[in-house]
Simulated scan of single mutants.
Amino acid sequence: MAEEIIIKRAVLHILDNNVTMPVLSDKELDIDEDQSNFIGKHIERIMSDNNAKMARFSDAPNFIRDICCEIKLNPDFFLQGSIGIAEGLFSIMQKNVDIPPADLICCLFYYESQPHLGILKLNYKTGYTHYVEQGEEGNINTIIRYRTLLPSESQKADECVLINLESLEMKLIEKAYEINGEREYYFSGMFLNCTTQLSDNEKVKIINKVAQKISKKYYDEDFETAAKLKKAISDSFEETKAIQLDNLVEEVFDKNVEIRNEYMEEIHKAGLTEKSIPIPEKLAEKKFRTHRIKTDTGIEINFPPSLYNNKEKIEFVNNSDGTISIIIKNVGKIINK
């Protein structure tokens, strides 16, 4: 666990909506090394998760915000506050049967010297383990199915929020479930009552999805448009550690102002309003450091976007019969993978 995460207090409540009441703990956890590592690893994963969204409480009355403010002033209120949080969440779960049962861990921790409240809803996983039954003929070892296993420290928590008690800024991970006949994000909308920003992953998906839509509309899904996009994003990230949207559209759709304006309009409609979008390096590495193409003959080629238009390395030749030839040049060695 990273040294800057220090777990001060923690408590576990059982929220199984198959029964009528939550099982609330009257005592905090005695945090040993194993428990500290388990909770700390989950917090680390939330902090670095590209699907996490930044959020803030709405201006309306909010019992979670009130609990956070009370815990900040009086840390001894933590246990009582966690019970209020668990009861509020369980009430929502009882009214909406598609929300899965879980154990709820509330924890008070410090991250980079700032106090935080963590609310981790650990939805149950189904797994198998051994069971020893003693009979007249001795031990009988068998396999049984467990419905209430917690996600391991290497697995992501499906629903959780980390709240900075100084600024009340939140980092949130949530899933949509059916609420009143429609799929909704109940964790932010009904439980936390907060407004959310797009996650890093959502921003990248919008940039790619809108580019694909424009490419299909105007370029018949020409692979060159996708290659230009990857190269422009990769170049932008190398220079500024962010995606500069104005530079991006100018480089990808340079010959048509109308298409550039349509791309930006679609981006804004999707909720992406920033002109400069910082992207974590791991996400950039995963999404933009390699461009992958697949031919209708089943051949797949991966190459760095920086090599696009570098005819000394790879060349795309439009043949007179409408087909495309791909020529890979100046290869010193071929490695089987």
Rank of each mutant, 00 (worst) to 15 (best):
G84V: 08
F63Y: 14
K175H: 11
L108P: 02
K231C: 01
V252L: 10
A227C: 10
S188C: 02
E281D: 11
I105N: 00
C69G: 06
S167Q: 08
I85D: 01
N318P: 02
I143A: 08
I43M: 11
H116P: 03
K213S: 02
K275P: 01
I314R: 07
K121I: 03
L122H: 02
C106W: 07
V11C: 04
S154C: 08
D246E: 14
I293V: 07
S236I: 09
D30E: 15
E137I: 06
L165K: 10
N139F: 13
L272I: 08
A226K: 14
Q155W: 00
C194A: 07
L15Q: 03
N164R: 05
A102W: 03
E4Y: 15
P115H: 13
A284V: 05
I31F: 09
A52L: 02
Y263D: 10
G332C: 05
S167R: 11
A2K: 15
L283R: 09
R45W: 12
L15H: 01
S276Q: 13
S58K: 15
C107K: 05
S215N: 09
G135V: 02
P75C: 04
F223V: 09
F237N: 09
F253C: 01
A52I: 00
K255D: 12
D158V: 03
E178C: 11
I83E: 11
T273M: 12
E265S: 14
L307R: 06
T290N: 15
S199H: 06
I335C: 10
D32R: 13
A242T: 04
N164P: 04
Y110C: 06
D76T: 09
N62F: 09
E258S: 15
Q155I: 05
E153Y: 13
K175P: 07
T126H: 08
R9C: 05
E251W: 11
N141E: 10
E136C: 07
L162T: 03
Q94H: 05
K72F: 08
D26H: 15
Y128G: 02
I334A: 07
K329T: 00
M190Q: 04
K294M: 09
E159Y: 02
F316I: 03
N96M: 01
Y308N: 06
R9V: 00
I14N: 00
T126A: 03
G271D: 02
T126S: 07
T323D: 08
Q197P: 00
